[in-house]
Simulated assay, not measured.
Amino acid sequence: MIGCHLCNKSIREISLLLNIPWSTVSGIITKQKQLGTRATQPQSERDQGMLKCTVRRSRQLSAESMAKDLQTSD
């Protein structure tokens, strides 16, 4: 897909050629331009939710032990 884009094919042409929705093609090309990769990035909202859940679950723990728990959960 990126190769087609680098060969000056339009998003519509790539979409028709590969039988993939144009929105998917556009998203992947945009991500490639912005981040230099097609890999997904960590979701910060999910990380924040995990932190809130950990804090609620164990309010009696010290900050050090919570940090240790969060590091081992990755």
Rank of each mutant, 00 (worst) to 15 (best):
D69Y: 04
G27M: 01
E45M: 03
C4I: 01
R56F: 00
K52F: 04
L35Y: 10
Q60S: 15
T37K: 11
C7Q: 14
S73Q: 11
M66V: 15
V55Y: 02
Q41C: 08
G3A: 11
V25N: 05
I20C: 10
D69N: 06
T54E: 14
V55E: 06
G27C: 06
T40K: 12
W22M: 06
D69W: 01
Q71G: 01
S44D: 05
K31H: 04
E64G: 03
T37C: 04
I14K: 03
Q34W: 01
N19V: 03
D47K: 14
C4D: 09
A63P: 00
M50A: 03
I14C: 05
A63D: 07
K52D: 15
Q41P: 01
S26H: 04
K31V: 02
K9V: 04
S10C: 01
P42F: 11
Q41R: 09
R56S: 09
D69V: 09
K31Y: 00
Q60F: 09
C53Q: 12
T37V: 03
L70N: 03
Q41E: 07
W22V: 11
S15R: 07
P21T: 01
Q43A: 07
P21H: 08
I29W: 00
I2D: 05
T40A: 13
I11H: 11
Q43N: 15
A63M: 04
H5I: 08
T37P: 04
T24P: 00
H5A: 15
Q43M: 12
R56V: 01
C4H: 11
T40Q: 08
Q60H: 13
T37Q: 11
H5R: 14
C4A: 12
K31T: 06
A63R: 08
M50C: 02
G36E: 12
D47C: 09
K68F: 11
R56W: 00
L35W: 01
E64Y: 03
A39I: 12
S58Y: 14
L35F: 07
E13Q: 15
Q32F: 15
R46L: 13
A63Q: 04
C7K: 15
G3T: 13
R57S: 14
S58V: 13
E45R: 12
T37I: 02
P42T: 12
L35R: 08
L16G: 08
A67W: 01
G36D: 02
I28V: 14
V25F: 03
D74Y: 02
D74A: 06
L17P: 02
L51Q: 01
L6H: 10
G49P: 01
W22C: 10
G49I: 06
T72E: 09
W22R: 13
I14Q: 07
I2V: 14
S15N: 04
L61N: 05
N8I: 06
S15I: 06
T37N: 03
S65C: 06
S65R: 12
S23R: 10
R38V: 13
S73Y: 02
Q41S: 08
E45N: 10
Q41G: 00
S73L: 10
T30P: 00
P42L: 12
I2F: 02
T24A: 10
Q34H: 08
T30M: 06
C4G: 05
R59I: 04
T54K: 06
Q32R: 09
